[in-house]
């Protein structure tokens, strides 16, 4: 790989499995263009039917309640509700960004050695400690919705560990073969989805819990 420059490799046609079809790049371009156009049609129809939200003229004297951030930040806002701003607003996002950047550099994925091949009990123990500590921390802050992914993921990891090394089923073996980064990323995505959904839909004036189908 080191002596194989990327440009050289780019010109190569990858090895082909028997029976596979190869298609010109032009066709890929067409297919992607068609996908873009279909998306564009969908968006155009959306734009024709649904009006973009617009509220009253900004008024610094009258606080909107709840003052909600754009939907993609409501997860952060939900965290802000539980943790001090410095933790939820600064440390966590910075950690997330850093984690995203270093993911490929820390990924030591050698398929033959899964997470559970060595030191299984030791690793399970650290997993349990981390999961319990995180749950206690989150519950202490009152962030019960953020504990859902922690519990789900740690339970799945424990299951995966129990499946490791013995033939159980395709899915089970696939899951037990997953590296740590997979679990962390899945946990992060789950947290993001749950917190964002809660923040965007289930929070009303004073950031209290409301059911979205119940109009205030």
């Amino acid at each position: 790989m080191m002596n194989n420059s990327p440009s050289e490799r780019g010109k190569q046609l990858p090895a082909r499995a028997p029976g596979e079809k190869s298609i010109s790049y032009r066709e890929l371009l067409f297919r992607e263009m068609i996908a873009i156009e279909i998306l564009a049609v969908v968006l155009v129809c959306l734009a024709l039917v649904w009006n973009a939200p617009l509220e009253q003229l900004a008024d610094p004297l009258h606080t909107a309640n709840p003052a909600k951030a754009p939907w993609y930040f409501t997860g952060l806002q939900e965290l802000l509700h539980y943790f001090p701003p410095f933790v939820a607003g600064v440390i966590l996002p910075t950690l997330i960004v850093l984690a995203l950047i270093v993911v490929p550099f820390f990924n030591v994925n050698i398929k033959d050695q899964t997470l559970w091949d060595r030191n299984k009990s030791q690793r399970l123990m650290s997993l349990a400690i981390i999961a319990v500590a995180l749950t206690v921390l989150l519950l202490h802050a009152g962030a019960w919705d953020a504990t859902i992914p922690v519990l789900t993921i740690s339970a799945l990891m424990a299951l995966a560990a129990s499946w490791a090394g013995r033939p159980v089923g395709r899915f089970q073996n696939w899951l037990s073969g997953k590296p740590l980064s997979f679990w962390i990323m899945t946990w992060f995505l789950m947290e993001a989805v749950i917190l964002t959904t809660v923040g965007a839909l289930f929070r009303g004036p004073g950031w209290v819990w409301v059911w979205p189908w119940r109009n205030s």
Partner: peptide, 16 residues
Amino acid sequence: WDQTSYWGVTVGSSIM
């Protein structure tokens, strides 16, 4: 520059 945008950005910038 409506209420949502004003207060959304106010919340965001106060985090910063």
